[in-house]
Amino acid sequence: MTDFARQVEGLRPHLMRFARAQLRNDAWAEDAVSECLLAALERPQSFSGQSQLKTWLIGILKHKLVDQLRRNTREATVLVGEDGEDLFDDLFQADGHWREAPRDWGDPDAACCQKQFFEVLQLCCEHLPPTQARVFMMREWLELESDEICRELAITSANLWVLLHRARLRLRDCLQLRWFDKAEAAAS
């Protein structure tokens, strides 16, 4: 085994974690990572050394993750109505005012760069209903355009927006509960 192959293989656990976070399916993640490593080992000359090896492999892996989602579209997608309730209407009174005004989340820089905050964010993503989690990760992690996500998952743009706004509201609720409420309690 060459040095390059050893280094690439050594990053398998990291790639598996990245793939699992995206796909939420161990078998699909295993396939995507294996294909990624195979592609890297077949074309070592395309690694210029200007970026970190890990960053280069993540770039390859993102394409393999999209391939997996495409292959498993039927399993990956459920109807919008089956993917958890919509929290939106509960936020407002009949006259359109907030039932409870959004809370102050303080200095964004304080939260955004803390490892513990990332852990809570990951936990919140894992608690999203499956399709919401999938479209949120495709949008925010794989950085796919809306029309690309719609094409891959065979859903309409209206369905996609509903799924994304439900995901954002659930994440907001979860972060409030698991991070900001605790920070508030600790400060008082």
Binding site: A21, Q52, I58, P102, W105, P108, C112
Partner: peptide, 20 residues
């Protein structure tokens, strides 16, 4: 608006962190 901004920034920071 501030909450949405924070979630967007945090997700981006988490992604960058996870890649490197």
């Amino acid at each position: 608006v501030s909450q949405l901004n924070l979630m967007r920034r945090a997700t981006r920071a988490w992604r960058k962190h996870s890649e490197t």
